Computed example of a mutant assay.
Amino acid sequence: MSITQQYLLDTYRARQHGDPTPPAPGAHDWQVMRELRDHRRFRAALTRRAARGRLRTALTRLLG
């Protein structure tokens, strides 16, 4: 069963029981990715590791 078919089945069942419909597949993907990035940055700050990503690359380029 595909994700779309499962979503349609869940929507049908929710309507039959009078429950609110579930969110569409992929509706919160970007929010989850942002939260994961923020969590990784937070964990890096707690362990006092060096910065990674665009900022570090830009600083290396400017200073080096």
Rank of each mutant, 00 (worst) to 15 (best):
M1C: 10
M1V: 15
M1T: 15
M1Y: 11
M1W: 11
S2G: 00
S2N: 05
I3W: 14
I3K: 14
T4S: 03
T4H: 06
T4Q: 06
Q5F: 05
Q5R: 08
Q5G: 01
Q5D: 14
Q6I: 15
L8M: 07
L9V: 08
D10W: 07
D10Y: 08
D10E: 12
T11D: 00
R13S: 07
R13Q: 13
R13A: 04
R13C: 02
R13L: 12
R13K: 11
A14T: 03
R15H: 04
R15P: 00
R15L: 09
H17G: 04
H17T: 12
H17P: 02
G18E: 02
G18W: 00
G18Q: 00
D19A: 06
D19N: 09
D19S: 01
D19F: 03
D19L: 11
P20G: 01
P20K: 07
P22C: 01
P22M: 02
P22D: 09
P23C: 03
P23E: 02
P23M: 01
P23H: 07
A24T: 06
A24G: 00
P25G: 01
P25E: 00
P25N: 01
G26N: 03
G26T: 03
A27R: 10
A27C: 01
H28M: 01
H28D: 08
H28F: 12
H28P: 00
D29L: 11
D29R: 09
D29C: 04
D29M: 05
W30H: 12
W30Y: 04
Q31L: 08
V32P: 00
V32T: 09
M33R: 15
M33H: 13
M33V: 15
R34Y: 10
R34Q: 10
R34A: 07
R34E: 12
E35F: 02
L36G: 00
R37Y: 09
R37E: 13
R37G: 05
R37P: 04
D38E: 13
D38R: 12
H39V: 12
H39R: 15
H39Q: 10
R40S: 08
R40N: 13
R40Y: 06
R41H: 09
F42D: 07
F42R: 09
R43F: 05
R43H: 11
R43E: 13
R43S: 12
A44W: 01
A44K: 08
A45L: 14
A45W: 02
A45I: 02
L46Y: 01
T47V: 11
R49M: 04
R49Q: 14
R49L: 08
R49H: 06
R49Y: 02
A50V: 00
A51I: 07
A51V: 11
G53N: 09
G53Q: 08
R54F: 13
L55M: 02
L55V: 07
L55I: 03
L55S: 06
T57L: 10
T57D: 14
T57I: 05
A58V: 13
A58S: 05
A58T: 09
A58H: 08
L59F: 08
L59Q: 09
L59G: 00
T60W: 09
T60P: 03
T60L: 13
R61L: 14
R61C: 06
R61H: 15
L62D: 04
L62K: 10
L63T: 14
L63E: 14
L63P: 00
